[in-house]
Amino acid sequence: MVSGVSAPVKVANETGTVVAMPSPAATSIHVDGVSMCYPLAKKKQRTVLENISLEIEDGEFVVLLGETGCGKSTLLRMILGQERPTSGKVYVSGKAVERVDARSGYVPQKYSLFPDRTVLDNLTMGPETSKYHILGRLMPGFRSFRKQVRKEAMRQLEHMGLRPTDAGKYPHQLSGGMQQRVAIAQALMMKNRVLLMDEAFSALDPATRASLQRLLKTVWNESKPTIVFVTHNTAEALYLGTRLIVLARSSHEDHCGSKVALDMKLPGNEAGMSLKKNGQEFLDLVDYVERFSRGNRHDDQALDESAVDGEEEAV
């Protein structure tokens, strides 16, 4: 059995409507009995998520794991406000989410930067628009404010490991890794407490990916924002997260959506786990987690296979 890991926390589903909000100080994201169905052709429906409830506390680094198509991105989009759940509700910072707004920062896998703006303009865009909207730029205070934001953006840029000369470049002139660094910086410029990342590092090569993981870990250690990070790389999940949530569906029929299969706190969250540091314990954990993500925790034969797979992936 897996040692040194707390047993999976079974989250109790609260039935009935929630009238009193959970205390906003502690709870950053509150997902309340959320289900999501997409219409299919011929009046059929496909349930993607089924009655999911989560409490994510302020300062947690949550990693969402699961097989492809299990609804990780969908859940993230609902926290973001881009999609409304078929039933249930999502609260961020104590308020219900209706539309996409500035409560959460967002770093998608692709198209994260505005191609028509330089790196510097991408960084300053957030603070600028949030203070001075489209016509506000004609106001007298705008120029001095902009100067100040630019200075801060340059600081942030260097913090992200980019050179000042990169500030004037357009996104298409940057490598994929640099683009994602800028995207994180851009989200951080808003100083929001919630950061949602959807496979933000998936398109990068292993070395770049590792360095970005370290960067993200540092950033989180510095200001402890709430991060929800979607990935399907278990090793990445174990290294980054303080809490790990696995979504899986129990059968492949259309009416059967994904549920929370595993929800556990990870130890040693300051430094993060890795094969190098934790050795066999890490491998066991990978194996354990992946069994859940396949949704077949009672199937012993599949367990062996997944252990082999897990090893391969973790290296």
Binding site: V100, D101, S104, P108
Partner: peptide, 18 residues
Amino acid sequence: VPQEQIVKAFTLDANNFD
């Protein structure tokens, strides 16, 4: 225009006209 761009802009506190 990728949906990501629009979502991203909203998370940067842009209003509809921005």
